[in-house]
Each structure stands twice: as structure tokens, then as C-alpha cells.
């Protein structure tokens, strides 16, 4: 769970805010998006969705492993 929270903080506070200016020197290939700006307005949201589903799957697997899966 901590690693997922680390990714959560990295894409939003890291790429979207702290590193925004530095990342903006590049553009995402084939589009007009500066990288930092894209993370702040699109990328972070997409990563958030992935995080929640990854967490749900991991926990399901843990539940099964410890025999506490709900029927």
C-alpha cells in the first residue's frame, strides 16, 4: 500500500507540481502537450484510476491467500 501511495504522491505532487517546470522543457511525442502540464491536467488522473484498481486486485488476492475472501 505504501508503494501505491508513493506513486500517488509522485505523479501529482512530483510530476504535476514540483517538477512541472523542469518537465515542461519536453513535449509528449506527436502532441502539443508539455510533459509537466500534461501530468498536472491529464496524466495524474489516469494514474490515480490505475492505482485504485491495482489496489483492489492486490487486496482481493491477499484476502484469498489468508482465507478471508467474502462469498
Amino acid at each position: 500500500m505504501l508503494s501505491l501511495l508513493a506513486v500517488w504522491a509522485f505523479v501529482s505532487f512530483g510530476c504535476g507540481i514540483l517538477l512541472h517546470d523542469w518537465l515542461d522543457q519536453w513535449k509528449i511525442l506527436g502532441t502539443g502537450f508539455p510533459v509537466g502540464f500534461w501530468f498536472a491536467q491529464q496524466g495524474s488522473i489516469l494514474v490515480f484510476i490505475a492505482l485504485v484498481f491495482v489496489y483492489a486486485r492486490r487486496m482481493d488476492r491477499l484476502d484469498k491467500e489468508f482465507g478471508v475472501k467474502e462469498e
Binding site: L5, W8, A40, Q41, F48, Y55, A56
Partner: peptide, 25 residues
Amino acid sequence: AISFLGYDGSVYLMGWTGGYVLLAL
């Protein structure tokens, strides 16, 4: 609001979606 704030408007986009990660975890 975003169209007036530009990059600063990102606080709403990240803030109002990132909360769901905390909620889920």
C-alpha cells in the same frame, strides 16, 4: 475556472480526483 487559471487550475483536477485514491486505500 481552468480556462481563466490555466496551469493553476490543475489544483482542482488533481485535488478532486486524487482524494479518491486516499478514499480507496
